[in-house]
Simulated assay, not measured.
Amino acid sequence: MKKIFFVLSIAFCFNCHNQAQINPKQQAVINADPVEVPLTNGKAKAYFASGCFWCVEAIYESVKGVDEAISGYSGGFTENPTYELSNTGRTGHAEAVEVIYDPNVVSYDTLVDVYFGSQNPTQVLGQGPDTGSQYRSIIFYQNDEQKKIIEQKKEALAKKLDAKIAAEVYPFQKFWVAEAYHQDFEKRNPNQRYVRAVSIPRLNKFKAKFPELLKESSKH
């Protein structure tokens, strides 16, 4: 379970992050060629990390054209990561989501807008109360076109905010599906303490900002 009020020292956060980033295996992930995921029954997949995957999953599932968002782990060098291992900050992975969408209804460009528009883009090593390298923001590209979209939007946002944007840009390699109890967690546990204090307010903030992107079922 998430611990909303647990205290993690700044020194520890940066130590974990640095361990991940200076690891040669992690650097190999960053420098690798991207893996492009083929369409399945006309549906595409995109990958994003932006703090707690419970929050990010709920946000993307509210967007028109998105069939499903799956919680998991990506961006690291450790095989078969688990929630417990990821939380040590030493696997290189971040909590991420796999977004399954209809490209005829919603574009990758729009999904990137959702990504940057549903987080604090300047927060380093986490989102809100969730801090550590496992909660860092990463946006994954599968080809040069996606990379160009990401970098242009990141640069424009940096100029708009006159600030450095924290999100890292990685070539997509592999997505590891998280444990079953993490899937649709916010939807299944609306009264859980963390969900009420963090996840639902973050979702509602997104809905208020992008009402035109919402499914009818998500507008109420």
Score class of each variant (00 low, 15 high):
61 E>V: 02
72 G>K: 01
70 I>A: 02
52 C>K: 03
55 C>H: 05
63 V>N: 11
46 A>M: 09
50 S>H: 10
62 S>R: 06
45 K>M: 13
48 F>T: 14
73 Y>W: 09
74 S>N: 06
48 F>M: 12
57 E>A: 06
53 F>S: 11
48 F>V: 13
87 N>K: 04
53 F>W: 08
64 K>Q: 15
46 A>K: 04
52 C>V: 07
49 A>I: 12
52 C>T: 12
62 S>A: 15
46 A>V: 14
58 A>P: 09
49 A>S: 15
70 I>M: 04
53 F>D: 13
44 A>L: 08
51 G>H: 10
74 S>Q: 05
68 E>L: 13
57 E>Y: 03
66 V>L: 08
75 G>L: 02
53 F>T: 12
56 V>G: 09
51 G>D: 14
47 Y>N: 06
54 W>L: 13
79 E>Q: 11
45 K>F: 07
67 D>P: 06
82 T>K: 06
48 F>I: 13
43 K>L: 15
52 C>M: 07
73 Y>E: 11
58 A>N: 09
86 S>G: 13
80 N>L: 02
81 P>R: 01
85 L>T: 08
88 T>C: 01
47 Y>F: 15
66 V>G: 08
83 Y>T: 03
46 A>N: 10
82 T>W: 02
71 S>C: 15
51 G>V: 13
57 E>L: 06
73 Y>M: 05
47 Y>C: 09
68 E>N: 14
84 E>D: 11
82 T>I: 04
